[in-house]
Simulated assay, not measured.
Amino acid sequence: MEVIKKENIVISNPETKDFLADAYYPESKQKLPLVIFVHGYKGYKDWGAWGLMAEKIAKAGFFFVKFNSSHNGTTTNDPHNFGDLEAFGQNNYSKELSDLGAVIDFFITDERVDDQKVILIGHSRGGGISIIKTSEDERINGLITLASVDTLERFPTGNAFENWKKEGVYYVMNGRTKQEMPHYFQFYKDFEENVHRFDVERAMEMAKAHILIIHGTNDESVAPKEAEHLHILNPNSELFLIDNANHTFGAKEPWESPDLPEDLNKAIEKCIDFINNKIVHE
């Protein structure tokens, strides 16, 4: 089945700023379930093997969307690099949720899309954002987390926090690009002002969608116990652990193979089965 790709579609969000999205879908006379992928911290839509993932999910009969959140540090002119570190520093969870809402609004009205079948796939921090969005937006009836966090309260503590508050910024080295990535204190203030809304545990308990939790047992960034915790919070969810898989399920940037990494392929096949069984044929 041939997949049609529309890349770098400009999405305008008056609450944030313009950002880019890609759509992958097969030719079909029937309306297709809408599957939206939400990247994580220091993530972007073209990272690693996400393009191969998009093609595989679209080939399975879905309208697949991936996007750069507006303040992830990329730009509409250069979606592959962190060319706007000032925007990265001004990112926060409110902006990421707003961007995800704008993506849903933009694509749910597409004539090819079945607006009764909307599924989010969130990786890492994007998993936490997807859980919150699912609890807030009744249009979403499927949620899949990939190596998701179980809390968004992930900030410096102790002296490091006090220094952040005093200086107004702290930096994290990007191991791949060697850039010093800024985090302004507004990020924490946004969390504090919306602490109830950003409660991932509460959102997981309240989520009414069909939920699949996928995690690698060798995840070096987010412990597998966070996946187990999410599953306990919503016992109707399904937990799928992949033995020895790491945080990105074997993918890395750049990904130069034409084939998906074995663990990511396993995760995607599970996603496809889950969507077909729980949402398409329910």
Rank of each mutant, 00 (worst) to 15 (best):
E2D: 14
I4C: 08
K5R: 15
K5L: 13
K6W: 02
I9Y: 12
V10G: 10
S12A: 10
P14S: 13
P14R: 09
E15Y: 09
D18F: 04
L20M: 12
A21I: 10
Y24H: 14
S28L: 12
K31W: 05
L32K: 05
P33K: 02
L34Y: 02
V35W: 01
G40T: 01
Y41H: 13
K42Y: 01
K45T: 08
K45V: 09
W47K: 04
W50E: 04
W50T: 10
G51F: 02
K59L: 06
F63W: 09
T76Q: 02
P79N: 08
P79H: 03
H80W: 07
H80D: 05
A87N: 13
N92D: 14
N92F: 03
Y93P: 00
V103Y: 08
F106I: 05
F107A: 06
I108V: 15
T109L: 13
T109N: 15
D110H: 15
E111A: 15
R112H: 15
R112P: 12
D114I: 11
H123I: 12
H123P: 07
S124K: 10
S124E: 11
S124N: 12
G127V: 03
G128A: 13
S130A: 14
S130C: 03
I131G: 01
K133V: 00
T134G: 05
T134M: 07
E136H: 05
D137Q: 07
N141A: 05
G142D: 03
A147E: 03
S148E: 05
V149W: 03
E153V: 08
F155Y: 15
F155V: 11
P156M: 13
T157N: 08
K165M: 05
K165T: 04
K166V: 00
G168Y: 06
V169T: 14
Y171N: 12
V172R: 14
V172Y: 07
T177H: 07
K178T: 07
M181A: 05
M181G: 01
P182K: 13
P182G: 13
Y184S: 02
F185A: 09
Q186G: 10
Y188W: 15
N194F: 04
V195N: 01
V195M: 05
H196C: 00
H196W: 00
R197T: 13
F198D: 06
R202C: 07
A203T: 09
M204C: 13
M206I: 11
K208I: 06
A209C: 08
L212D: 01
I214C: 12
H215G: 11
E220M: 04
E220L: 04
S221H: 06
V222K: 00
A223Y: 01
A227M: 08
E228N: 09
H229W: 06
L230G: 10
L230D: 09
I232C: 04
N234D: 08
P235R: 13
N236V: 01
S237K: 06
S237P: 05
L239Q: 02
N244W: 03
A245C: 10
W255T: 06
E256S: 11
P258S: 10
E262N: 08
K266M: 14
A267P: 13
A267V: 12
K270C: 11
C271L: 02
D273S: 14
I275N: 05
N276Y: 10
N277L: 09
V280I: 15
E282F: 03
